[in-house]
Computed example of a mutant assay.
Amino acid sequence: MIDILLVPIVLVIILVMLHSYFGMEILKRGIIFTDLAIAQFAALGSSISLGYFHEEHFYLLTLSFALFSAFLIAFASTRKLHLEAFIGILYVLGASGIMMVLSHSAEGMEHFKSLLASDILFTPPMEVAKSAVIYAFIAIALYFIYPKLSGFLKELLFFSLLAITVTSSVSLAGVFVVFVLLIAPPFVALSLNFKKPLLGSFIFGWFFSISAITISYFYDLPTGYSVVFLGAFLTALVVLAASKKALEN
């Protein structure tokens, strides 16, 4: 059992740490669906690779589409428009594009399901190691380069690094898993007013993701969807319990 669970647990520990940071920044900006939009464009790139190129140029297409959406969001953030609405349009554009590309593929729906939430229980250790190296470089860029920039360049670097992160994460875990790991941990940490919200995000994210992996193993449930369900369920409960009643007019 330990041999099977060790790799996915190491994977979610890494994913939670980097994604919680990005999620905290996204919540501060008030653009919640940014990661979903970028993830959908990354998934669109991988779908095009599957549908038209027999999975050739997989990473290149996935990353290119993710970076393109990141550039659009970074540019839009410097304009006077309803940014959340624009990001929502990008999301449905990517989602509809995926369905159109995969509509004539015999393996289309299976690929679509794995794009939403992969069975991370059987993730190859080498893939986890490759992603860990990528995430390490992203963390270095966020720590040393990002604070020194300003304006459009700062936004472009942030969303580009998010796009690279999402590209690796979607291929490993799926769109829904990426979203819940990005938003749920910081959402809970901020709602509970932790003195160290990022550390609180790590703890909550590790708790529900490792619990979901263990439950999915013993009850033969799809691992990715188990992580999404438990993370979303616990987040909804905690946030509602911690919230105050809205003032009546």
Rank of each mutant, 00 (worst) to 15 (best):
D3K: 15
L5V: 15
L5W: 06
V7W: 10
V16R: 05
S20V: 06
G23V: 01
E25P: 01
F33V: 12
D35M: 06
Q40V: 03
Q40I: 06
A43P: 12
L50E: 11
E55C: 03
E56S: 12
T62F: 04
A66L: 02
L67V: 12
F68L: 14
A70V: 08
L72S: 05
A76P: 02
L81W: 03
H82K: 05
G88Y: 09
Y91T: 04
S96N: 14
I98D: 07
V101Y: 10
H104N: 13
A106T: 13
E107I: 12
G108D: 07
H111I: 08
L115F: 12
L116I: 14
F122T: 13
M126Q: 12
K130F: 13
S131Q: 10
A132P: 09
A132W: 09
Y135S: 11
Y135A: 10
L142Y: 03
L142T: 04
I145E: 05
P147F: 08
L153E: 00
L156S: 01
F159I: 01
F159N: 07
L161C: 05
T167H: 04
S168I: 09
S171K: 12
S171H: 14
S171F: 09
F176V: 05
V178G: 05
F179T: 11
V180T: 15
P185W: 00
V188Q: 04
V188T: 05
L190E: 07
S191V: 07
P197F: 07
G200A: 01
S201M: 10
F202P: 07
F208A: 09
Y217L: 04
G224N: 03
G231P: 02
L234Q: 08
L234A: 14
T235I: 06
L237F: 15
A241V: 06
L247M: 10
